[in-house]
Design a binder for these strands. Structure first.
Lengths: 185, 185
DNA sequence: GTCTATAAAATGATAGAC
DNA sequence: GTCTATCATTTTATAGAC
């Protein structure tokens, strides 16, 4: 007999391996071995490897914004909330060993799959919408950049900082991005 | 008999497939089939699939900067050259169907391989160095950003614009990035 | 140097017992 | 629902003829 939570253990293990190693390089064999479940149990819960990938993306998307909401809750004011976005992602990258954005990693590997691409876009769009919303809440801002440009710049600073961090396995670039953000905000 | 250029045909085919489909998803079988060469010929020129990947990265790195040099040659002045970097990458993305940066794609798939990571870092660093150099050549610039911050921002705007373009299969984000660059330069 | 044939292992997925 | 056994393919790589 096995303690319940088989489906959860499959998804957790697959999620970890997909992120750490990559999707295509992670085989079903490794997943069932490390999750310590039977081969057919996996296919019982997830009809195919692709379904497992989509579940991973959906699950990560949900927990990502849950964590973000909790992180932003104690922060007051749109400007500080925007800067907290940098801290949130830096903190997450530290936790995940600087392997970059979960969604960008998958996008690089499987962006031809429309179901995958849709989920990546949905995730990024929601993040971008949040940035736009916060920027619009800043009172009497005077800058050479208009609101849309500022929001785009902040988004790209965030994305870029994480992407570069992947190469150096550090948050240095993201910290620099935050400094730049502090200057232009 | 076969017209010469076997090695070149192998590398060209592999390069195209690695970029379009991804590295891990591209099998030796597909490469030898589309290059129309024999299995052992591939292993004669490239001892392993990894060697083929490294050759792809080295080759792409070289041609990338050759093309960039040619592109920048007729452009006068550091500011216009910096803006031309955006045009260069937008032009390249159009040519390659908006699949993102060759090196970032591989980094997402195989960044645990040190030989791969070294080449990705080398490529990005050289690009960054060029940006720093051009920024330093701008005469009497007055901005809220210092030179290092400006260079970092331009780099991240460039990288981010290409990365987002991958999701939407367009150069819209890169065009917006260029507009922002024009504003802050 | 290029070729065909083949090896050994891993891939995603299914059948059928319990 | 979970299990073991097995399937057909595909994977990277090698042997040996020409």
């Amino acid at each position: 007999m096995r303690e319940s939570g088989v489906k959860e253990r499959i998804l957790d293990t697959a999620s970890r391996l997909f992120y750490d190693q990559g999707y295509h390089v992670t085989g079903i064999n490794q997943i069932i071995e490390e999750a310590d479940i039977a081969r057919a149990s996996l296919y019982n819960h997830f009809p195919s490897k692709t379904d497992l990938l989509l579940a991973y993306l959906d699950n990560t998307h949900a927990s990502w914004f849950e964590e973000l909401d909790a992180f932003l809750k104690p922060v007051a004011g749109p400007r500080d909330k925007l800067l907290a976005l940098f801290d949130f992602r830096i903190q997450r990258q530290r936790k995940f060993k600087y392997k970059g954005c979960h969604f960008n990693r998958i996008a690089a590997e499987a962006s031809d799959d429309q179901e995958v691409l849709t989920r990546v876009k949905k995730h990024k769009q929601r993040f971008k919408d949040l940035i736009y919303e916060l920027v619009s809440q800043i009172p009497e801002r005077r800058s050479i950049l208009n609101n849309d440009q500022l929001a785009d710049t902040l988004f790209l600073l965030l994305e870029g900082g994480i992407a570069v961090g992947l190469m150096y396995r550090s948050s240095d670039a993201a910290e620099q991005s935050k400094q730049i953000a502090e200057t232009i905000l």
